[in-house]
Design a protein around this nucleic acid. Structure first.
Length: 243
DNA sequence: GTGAATGTTAACAG
DNA sequence: CCTGTTAACATTCA
């Protein structure tokens, strides 16, 4: 369920509940459920992989991790971490972390770091990268303080588009190429959003979970790279290693 | 049936 | 805030 675009989809699906009053909240999350009763939902927001339900003085933050899911109207068989009950409707969240944030969201999050946000600031991202010359680009793309919302799929696909090997060192990548990586991270995220909605995401993977590139049929290497040791999929023929 | 995976944090070892 | 490893979460898909 994760990665920024999937959270944007959730936000859109939740829209019909905006301005509705929560009749009751339940679930095994360790927050004060009674505090949500009879409260009006002001808005739904997101920052990277974080989803927010905004109330007057506080916000509920949901992070779905690797296994998280949600369901509208009818519960699944397993216990929900959080369930919001409305008149004649319900929404359920499973296997996620739930936290309560006090005060204004803007005081806690920098929305210019969110790859999906209107406020996304590519120059700001490049600026942050200047201090990380010795890091591998594959690790840095997963850094949520710089590329909030980028996950392992976007990392691999954006690097393929930019033609850069995931083990390349940030300080050795030419600046034009670096800009291209930042641009593709955002561009691919929006393609991800569109394809996910149309159930076309998997078939459009160029390298992720593939043995050959989709378009050009070049062989794809799978390797756990960097400090994060996450799976990288890449084409040696089409992605240059800057080292 | 088996294993890997769109993620993150906490606990623990050295 | 020393650094690296492991477990936990308990699902879904190939």
């Amino acid at each position: 369920m994760p990665e920024g675009p999937s959270i944007v989809i959730l936000k859109e699906k939740m829209l019909y509940l905006k301005h509705k009053i929560v009749a009751e909240a339940s679930g095994y999350a360790e927050i004060d459920m009674d505090a949500l009763s009879h409260k009006k939902i002001l808005d739904f927001k997101s920052w990277g992989k974080h989803f927010f339900i905004c109330f007057t003085d506080f916000t509920i933050r949901i992070h779905f991790g690797l296994f998280g899911s949600y369901q509208f109207h009818e519960p699944k068989k397993v216990n929900p971490k959080l369930a919001l009950h409305f008149n004649n409707d319900d929404v359920y969240f499973y296997v996620c972390t739930i936290e309560r944030i006090e005060g204004a969201l803007e005081d806690h999050y920098d929305f210019s770091a969110d790859i999906m946000s209107d406020e996304w600031d590519p120059k700001g991202a490049l600026k942050k990268l200047e201090a990380l010359a010795e890091k591998q680009i594959g690790d840095v793309l997963l850094d949520q303080h710089i590329f909030s919302g980028v996950g392992n799929i976007i990392k691999n696909e954006a690097l393929y588009r930019a033609g850069v090997h995931p083990e390349s060192l940030v300080g050795k990548i030419p600046s034009a190429r670096m800009k291209s990586i930042v641009k593709e991270a955002r561009a691919y995220s929006f393609d991800f959003l569109r394809w996910r909605k149309d159930d076309q995401l998997t078939k459009n993977f160029e390298v992720y979970r593939r043995t050959e590139t989709r378009s050009s049929g070049k062989s794809v290497i799978k390797k756990d790279t960097g400090k994060s040791k996450r799976s990288s999929y890449f084409s040696v023929a089409e992605q240059k290693l800057y080292k």
